[in-house]
Design a protein around this nucleic acid. Structure first.
Lengths: 359, 359
DNA sequence: ATTAGCAGTCAACACGAGAGAGTGCTAACA
DNA sequence: TGTTAGCACTCTCTCGTGTTGACTGCTAAT
């Protein structure tokens, strides 16, 4: 049924019809199309055209005497044809901006805020996925003793700070933590987390050689670092926010349908399947049957990868009904990922900020 | 209409009827009561009794020929009469336990996790409110320089760690941060956050006297500390979780009704009104008209304060329909707040842990 | 190729009848 | 006086019917 060479008029009709349906949520009818776009044609003619478009699989009727709605194929055609950027609202722009400018630099906080703002901008549930935690590049390692018999492990990476708490013995002099932090930092600087974890046994030996007198203490620290690494590896990198926004779409006024989607979002493994194989330069839309999950056949999933050196580091995406504002969503995702990329750049050139690079 | 001296039989009927309605969600009928509790009485007799209870305002009919449902007053009577503890499910117990035992000691993380687990245990949206941030007692202050031109401010308090990031100049030797941290810690130890903020100007002068050579640096730090204090004071202490669980109750299958409640939960000012004036030893239920918000007249709000020296530090609560499992909810809230109190105790006696005080 | 005209289809809404569940009331009974 | 059987009554819920209105598909004329 590959038949993408539509006549110019069919193309026009289809694109306008889909556009109009996305905005209004009311089925496409011949008189509808006429009053909006083709005042010089009769409804009968348009009916013929719509009929043809239906035969080609771009539209479908819900029942005999109803208007038509786009099929997944119709949406796909629309998306392929008119992916133009639309400007986002100013307040959303500034909000996204301020997140990336803000002082919340814990990786987890940033992820949460991004997911929040994407959901807000699109009005659909949003997902941020961090892949390759273990690919993060270590910049510094700090171990900070606390009063409560715990220490805070703080690892600065090229993408933000990650942290964990570990139990410690309380009779260790504070200088030891400074020594340990310095040793760990110089040892692991520019290595990845997975490097660190894989070779941690070797390092432990080296460390104990160099700082013989604190052997027992460092043993304990390394042990905790290992636990930390394992807990990070186990941790799912999936963050979903704004599930409730699904209920704003008329398509999901039916609670049962909404719950199906929300349940999927609560399941990291399934979410990973959804946002697998994304592009990094253009937003990937998976429409209907293109989604690898049986229960989401009436949804569209939109996602964009953030890649460094061709390697996917993070994915940002949303999920909603097939009838969604594709252009706006693509713009929002691209803008967010773009800001992310900018941030990285700043981060690498280390403190090139403070210049007035307003746009 | 104060008429709380019900006959023993009316009392029995009312309590059982309310109990049964809470469990089944289907209206109380005479035959219903008969088959469940009073097999030796006829339905006619029970009808008379139900009629009387209705006249007294404990029950009401939805329409002439329907069964009865409890009024707010009926629930109130039920709550006052039979507040017994019910055991929580084991997995919930252990989950709560593990949160408090866990190593996540950032105050914000703990609050999030508590709200999550309370919502999970009760199956209703849960709220945790921190009041009197400024009453927190400082134990240590640490300023930790980071690579990105920021420093992490870490304040250990008697209730957990709070943290913030501040921009710094990059040319400060690391020893300065150690000196500053030590100075701040010794100066503010056992003072409250509000003490610190109120007197920060004086301390700034003192600090600059004592460590003259770092004047400019400390000025900057104090400035950031002040910003930090202000941002904390502004920050609402309200955390709500599990809003979606509202949709599990048949009462809120109507999206519009559910949204009303969810909107309130998104508004910290209104939430503060809801959970105002709670008890600290017994769970406070606000039923129907007892709730100080017009739009929540068909809800019940349950809450419990955590107090130290008669001063409310935190509140934990849930919101749901009037038909809720009061006993179970009271038990859950009490258990969580109890764990909170235990934690404080441990914290105060500084490292009295590690003993096998299982129950 | 386009169009007017017309018959056909189907959702949505309103109306009415019937069933069923539950009540209130009355009169009889212990 | 408390309890009960019996009966009429009320109201929701469901189902079937009929009507309306919005669209469509098709045909024949332009």
């Amino acid at each position: 049924m590959r038949d993408d060479d539509l006549s110019a008029r069919k193309r026009e009709i289809l694109l306008n019809a889909v556009e109009s349906y996305i905005q209004s949520a009311s089925p496409i009818t011949s008189s509808n199309v006429r009053t909006n776009y083709f005042k010089n044609l009769s409804t009968a003619t348009l009916r013929n055209e719509l009929n043809a478009l239906e035969a080609m699989g771009y539209l479908k009727q819900l029942h005999t005497s109803s208007g038509r709605v786009p099929t997944a194929r119709g949406y796909r055609y629309y998306v392929n044809e008119i992916m133009c950027d639309v400007p986002l609202e100013d307040n959303i722009l500034t909000e996204i901006h301020s997140i990336f400018q803000s002082r919340a630099v814990y990786l987890g906080d940033v992820v949460n805020e991004i997911a929040d703002v994407v959901s807000k901008a699109t009005n659909y549930p949003a997902v941020v996925m961090l892949k390759g935690f273990e690919k993060l590049q270590i910049k510094t390692v700090k171990i900070i003793p606390l009063l409560t018999g715990q220490a805070l492990i703080l690892i600065e990476t090229n993408s933000g700070i990650i942290n964990n708490f570990m139990p410690i013995k309380t009779d260790i002099p504070s200088q030891t933590y400074v020594d340990a932090s310095n040793f760990l930092t110089s040892t692991f600087k520019d290595k990845t987390l997975s490097d660190m974890m894989q070779n941690i046994e070797d390092y432990r030996i080296q460390m104990c050689d160099e700082l013989q007198e604190f052997k027992g203490i460092f043993d304990r620290m390394i042990e905790s670092l290992r636990e930390f690494g394992e807990s990070i590896a186990k941790k799912s990198g999936v963050t979903a926010k704004g599930e409730l926004r699904l209920l704003n779409s008329p398509e999901y006024h039916d609670l049962e349908k909404a719950k199906k989607v929300i349940d999927v979002l609560a399941n990291p493994t399934e979410v990973e399947q959804l946002f697998d194989n994304l592009d990094s330069d253009e937003v990937t839309f998976k429409i209907g049957a293109e989604i690898p999950l049986e229960e989401l056949q009436d949804c569209t999933v939109a996602g964009l990868d953030y890649q460094v050196d061709g390697e996917s580091i993070a994915s940002v995406g949303i999920i909603g009904p097939q009838r969604m504002d594709y252009a706006k969503i693509a713009s929002a995702l691209k803008f967010v990922v773009g800001e992310f990329a900018n941030l990285k750049q700043l981060d690498n050139t280390q403190k090139g900020a403070e210049d007035g690079q307003e746009e």
